[in-house]
Write a protein that binds this DNA or RNA. Sequence first.
DNA 1: TCCTGTGAACTTGTTCACAGCT
DNA 2: AGCTGTGAACAAGTTCACAGGA
Lengths: 204, 204
Amino acid sequence: MRYQKVPDETIRRLPRYLRALLFLQQRKTESISSQKLAEYVQLNSAVIRKDLSHFGAFGKRGTGYNVSLLSKTIRDILKLNKPQKTVLVGAGRLGTAIASFPGFKRYGFDITAIYDNSKAKIGGKIGDTTIKSTSRLADIRRSEIKMAIIATPPDAAQETADILVENGVTGILNLSSCYLKVPKRVKVRTIDLAMELSMLPYYS
Amino acid sequence: MRYQKVPDETIRRLPRYLRALLFLQQRKTESISSQKLAEYVQLNSAVIRKDLSHFGAFGKRGTGYNVSLLSKTIRDILKLNKPQKTVLVGAGRLGTAIASFPGFKRYGFDITAIYDNSKAKIGGKIGDTTIKSTSRLADIRRSEIKMAIIATPPDAAQETADILVENGVTGILNLSSCYLKVPKRVKVRTIDLAMELSMLPYYS
DNA sequence: TCCTGTGAACTTGTTCACAGCT
DNA sequence: AGCTGTGAACAAGTTCACAGGA
């Protein structure tokens, strides 16, 4: 399904809500008000109500939102209701950390393929997944992988992205410290940890 | 120095400019127009001109900006002109990846202390830095560390943040998957990689 | 009474477009 | 001619405030 004119910022916040809701589900909480949820995710409650209202009205006045219904709904909106096959390119320290990180699985991502160009690493394993040579990267086409994480050095990132996009990837989490040129239909999220840190001293 | 009313978004973009400028300096480029710089950082050129104009007028009409002057100016604004002592808490896979990552040093961050609570890791080294016990975390007060990176499991993150803030930290890059409560004077940037990935399937 | 859903007001950020300097 | 710096127009996002359902 596709919704008309949902602000980007709303989509960016949905995972935050989902994280809080998963936590609340563990706690067996049945319903939650926008006010309470706002405390968890450190936002104004009106933002939450407006965000959710884009997808229909599933809150109950006087009570709030049903936790498990809302959690399911957000997973549906974000297409996290089925496992999202994901490829990781770059099995350096950062790549390895990511592949071993349980958080991705919890949100529905399944890292089903890992590629690296270092002979020393190819054939090795991270968890259950064997590291394959980047020369075979185009093989992902057959496994219908749509999501990718790039954790290569910057000079390999663009080439990697090109091959990924050519072979069916439509979403990229780019952890290399450079911007990628991709067709408009492909969504890229670039995170450079050094740059995120760099803005902090200004405020001190 | 402090500037009046600089938008947050401007501060967030300065590191992007800096990254491009460092690259251009390597290439021995002497000056660059907002137009060209905009291509590098994938922004509209007017954004760049407006951002920079908050800090004074150091472009030359007809020519553009002097690369090394601008690079120095941005480092000054961001307080990256002197090494920023930084503490890393959490020496798991992600923490180790970060401590070994050369990018931080390039932007002026010096990871001078690393803490972890695992007996197996305490006393070990990452690069030249010895891992110390989190029970000694308050020691950072003496070294005048202002910046911190939290790469602990979520359940340790808030406690860690409290001790850091108590002992002089004013900027935190929080890589744990939970939000932190800190006094207003402290700036926190939270990055949860799983959440960054979670917004991508929506657009596919 | 409690809390949602939402128009309207407000705030913040972006883009345009051009005067004026080099 | 080329490019900056900036007011003015525009767009996006946030907060307020309240009618109305449970």
